[in-house]
Computed example of a mutant assay.
Amino acid sequence: MMVELDVYVKAGIITLFVFLFGLMFVKYIDQDRLDRLNAELDKVSYGSESARLLQLYTLVFNLSQNERCSYFGREMNQSMVRSMELASLLEKEKDNSLSGSYLNIKHKFLLTNMELYLYSRQYRASCETRMESLLYFYDGKAFCPGCLVAEGRLESLKQRCPDVRVFAFPYNSDESLLSLLVSKYGVATVPAIIRANDEKVGTVSDLGAISCVSR
Rank of each mutant, 00 (worst) to 15 (best):
T112E: 12
F109Q: 00
S99I: 08
H107P: 13
H107S: 15
N96Q: 09
L111T: 15
C127G: 05
L98T: 08
E115H: 07
Y117H: 05
D95Q: 12
Y117R: 04
Y123K: 02
L116M: 00
E115M: 04
Q122I: 10
L110C: 01
Y102R: 03
N113I: 02
R121P: 04
N104F: 07
N96A: 09
L118P: 00
Y123T: 03
N113S: 03
I105Q: 09
L103T: 13
L116W: 01
L118K: 09
Y123Q: 00
Y117Q: 02
H107Y: 15
R124D: 09
R124E: 08
G100A: 00
L111I: 14
H107M: 12
E128P: 06
K108W: 02
N113R: 01
Q122E: 13
T129D: 02
K106E: 13
K108T: 07
D95W: 04
L116F: 01
L118S: 06
C127S: 07
L118I: 05
C127W: 13
H107Q: 15
Y123W: 02
E128D: 11
K106M: 09
Y102E: 03
C127Y: 15
Y123H: 03
Q122P: 09
Y123E: 01
R121H: 06
H107E: 14
S126C: 04
L111N: 08
S126D: 15
N96L: 10
G100T: 10
L103G: 11
N104S: 12
G100N: 14
T112K: 08
R121Y: 05
M114I: 09
T129V: 07
L116K: 00
Q122G: 14
M114P: 08
L110G: 05
A125W: 07
N104G: 11
L111R: 12
S120V: 05
S99W: 15
L98Y: 12
L118M: 07
S120N: 12
Y119I: 09
Y102G: 01
F109G: 00
S97F: 06
T129E: 02
L116T: 05
R124C: 04
L98C: 03
F109A: 01
L116S: 03
F109V: 01
T129H: 08
T112N: 04
K108E: 05
L111Q: 14
Y123I: 00
L111V: 13
L103Y: 15
N113T: 06
G100Q: 07
C127I: 11
L103D: 15
F109N: 02
Y102K: 00
S120A: 11
Y102M: 00
Y102F: 03
N96V: 12
D95H: 14
K108V: 07
L98K: 03
M114W: 08
S101A: 10
Y117W: 11
K108I: 07
N104E: 13
N96M: 14
S101C: 02
Y123R: 00
E128G: 09
L103S: 13
L116H: 01
S126F: 14
G100H: 08
L98A: 07
K108C: 02
A125V: 11
T112L: 02
I105H: 02
T129I: 05
S99D: 11
F109L: 00
Q122C: 03
S97E: 05
Y102Q: 06
S120I: 04
R124F: 10
I105N: 02
L98I: 08
L110A: 06
H107L: 12
L118G: 01
L118H: 11
Y123L: 01
A125S: 13
I105K: 06
L111P: 01
H107W: 13
C127R: 12
L110F: 04
L103H: 13
